[in-house]
Amino acid sequence: MAVINTVSLTKYYGKTRGIEDLHLTVEQGEVFGFLGPNGAGKTTTIRVLTALLRPTKGTASVLGKDAWRHSAIIKEELGNLPGDIRLYDKMSGAEFLNFIARFRPRKPPVLKEELIERFDLNPNKRIKDYSKGNRQKLGIVQALMHDPQLLLLDEPTSGLDPLMQQQFYAVMEEFRSRGRTVFISSHILPEIERVCDRVGIIKEGHLVSVERISDLEAKHVRYVDVSFEGSVNQEDFRVPGVTAIERINDHLRITVKGEIDPLIKKLAQYNVKDLASSHASLEEVFLEFYGKGGTVER
């Protein structure tokens, strides 16, 4: 069953494009990543799905119901974490969570205490005294605490420290194992790869591709910066997957697309002094996947 289904979904802000002709289906039990650079239309899509924005054209259904007309019913089973969340500063964390919980008398916040503990949140402080990270944690707890069927999370790890990010990924795994559907928007590729089954890539308001994560990894671009004891011939490293080799000062920058294993095996034959691997930026991934015009290269 499709939990999210959009057909030709389009949103314009006056003459400014938000999203255009978006066809998207997210199945039940799936963790779906929505990847794109800032301004691509990720937040617009989530706001249309949560009926904060009215579509200019097309339709969106959530949990089998029209997203705009039945939004209040849908939200009984929806947990939403808005991007750059704004909270009621005068309330304490506990007051805020209780206030949110009372909107769903039939869905008690069964995960509230557990999430507060796991995210190491002090609910007794006033929200205005919270750091950005703690505000984000509070936002996550309010979205997840009633164990909804569907989660819409806009840049959920923004402001979280690495430890809390790991905690968040673990919680997402648990939601997946309980058959919940999760829709995560992000501009961080490794994060999407870490938690999602499929990823939709949005660019300039258009959904340019939907990939399984395993397929995405095959196209993945990494940079391996490596320095050696003594001199080496850079052409020795032209193994399968390596697309470019560049000498920068005293080390080599090797660009790898897809499997990194052949390169690692080759490097193991040399005396390596230092090695660092980094992911290509999202823009670079887009250029790699879709070319400058944004069309899909097949």
Partner: peptide
């Protein structure tokens, strides 16, 4: 103005209500 409307309307409540 403050943007808290987004969290309010993320709850099961109609705009009219």
């Amino acid at each position: 103005e403050s943007g808290t409307i987004e969290i309010l309307l993320s709850q099961p409540i109609t705009r009219t209500s």
